[in-house]
Amino acid sequence: MDPIIRSLLDTDLYKFTMWQTMLHRHPQTQAEYSFVCRNEPAYPLAELLGDVNEQLDHLCSLRFEPDELAYLGALRYIKSDFVDFMRIFRFQREFITASVEGPVLHIRSLGPQVHTMAFEIFVLAIVNELYFRRFDRDAALAQGRKRLQDKIALLRTFEKEPPRRHPFEFFDFGVRRRYSRDWQREVVATFKNEVPQYFKGTSNVLLAKELDLVPIGTMAHEYLQTYQALGFRLRDFQKAALEGWVQEYRGDLGVALTDVVGMDAFLADFDLYFAKLFDGLRHDSGDPLVWGEKALAHYVKLRIDSHTKRLVFSDGLDLETAMKLYRAFADRAQTGFGIGTNLTNDVGLVPLNIVMKLTGCNAQPVAKLSDSPGKTLCDDQTFLAYLRQVFNVTALA
């Protein structure tokens, strides 16, 4: 077997930042995560079951190495007791299962959240790489390298544009849907070497460590969703989650995710207190232009100088879309663009639209009411209806 995951740092930074917060504040939480493929693969993912189980066995044999722990410990927002936890941590195989139902591959992790939450990115990277190993590798890499050079040429056209108030900065957010581990490394290293004036970091902690880049990330949907099941009044879960984050990081990692129950419901909770404490907001569903205007209007309403805040866009971006959004907002606020699939899996093949989402917590359903149709993942229609009622959110078609 050729192991896909060879280091436990080969994952997104926000896994560690959320992990630390949950370990410190809610270590007893039980959680369930479910794998879903949202598009039609070229062949049934069920065919990968044996290989997936082999890769999961290998993943559960890995531990953090001393140099990896030293790297984590050198990040100023990572606490020493969390590094001590990482020192003894190992994935427990009993907390994750893979099975098939007809052509459908099912992967489910269930157990203490501090033992299950980190499976997600590794599972997605494993399924992706196994899936694409069946295609012509040489043709894919040739096409990928051509497209990579086209992206660099496009970025260099920025030098001819009139300067704006804030610079154009983009990041690699491509671990979960990458074509392969080695291809992500080649893409990230190429951007670092060719366009360092624009490329400012990666969510992949291992690549950040090895290529001397800034690791990028704060929180994901699962963090806020967990607070739906921690005993807070449901109407107050966003405020409780944001407050927990503020208390944990005391000014670091200050970009808040806005779309767990939609932008409008988020802004209703994002009052002057939070707007001053957080450095900015991250967009991950819905029309990004509409979202950005709502964010800026909210800062104006609160009499906050938007030039001191950052709007981070991360929903299905490519470079062309990122540049369009930059031109729309860069004279009014700082911007940042996290690009995933269109950086690390743009090789001429149709990417898998796979996710592994938090679907239950403490034996209760949790959900995201996305600003985009098709992104909601929850089997409990009663809870979804209740969540929509509490936050006055209309169901999307």
Rank of each mutant, 00 (worst) to 15 (best):
Y273A: 08
A98H: 01
Q238A: 15
L352T: 09
V100R: 05
F82L: 02
A42P: 00
D12Q: 10
L302E: 07
A328G: 00
H26E: 06
M356W: 01
R93V: 14
F274N: 03
F89T: 10
R6Y: 00
F383W: 13
I126N: 01
A240I: 10
R185M: 02
F232K: 10
F266K: 05
L257H: 10
S109Y: 03
G50E: 14
L207Q: 05
F16H: 09
R147W: 14
G174A: 07
V390N: 04
V393N: 03
H58W: 11
D172T: 04
K209R: 15
H24F: 13
M117V: 09
L387C: 05
L105Q: 12
V83N: 03
L9R: 07
D315K: 06
N204S: 15
K209W: 07
V393L: 09
M117F: 11
A125K: 15
L105Y: 13
P196Y: 05
Y14G: 01
T321P: 00
F337Y: 12
K357C: 13
V350T: 15
A31W: 09
R87W: 04
E243F: 14
L224Y: 15
F313N: 02
S34M: 10
E32C: 06
S372F: 05
A70R: 11
D287W: 08
D138G: 04
M18H: 03
V393C: 09
V312R: 09
N345Y: 07
R327V: 12
L234H: 07
P112K: 09
V261F: 08
L8D: 05
Y299Q: 03
D2H: 01
I107A: 01
P162S: 06
G360T: 10
K239C: 15
L141C: 03
N353H: 15
L224I: 13
K192G: 05
S306C: 06
N204V: 13
Y77E: 08
R177N: 13
L369W: 12
D236T: 14
E159R: 11
V366M: 06
N342E: 15
P44N: 11
A139Y: 00
L213F: 15
G73E: 12
L155R: 06
L311D: 08
D287F: 05
L49K: 11
V127P: 01
F95I: 03
T21D: 10
V255M: 00
E210W: 08
D287N: 15
K192I: 11
W19I: 04
A98L: 02
F135Q: 00
D346F: 14
D371A: 08
S285C: 08
L75N: 03
Y326A: 01
L154N: 06
K375C: 02
D287G: 02
F391G: 01
G262W: 10
F168A: 07
V100Y: 04
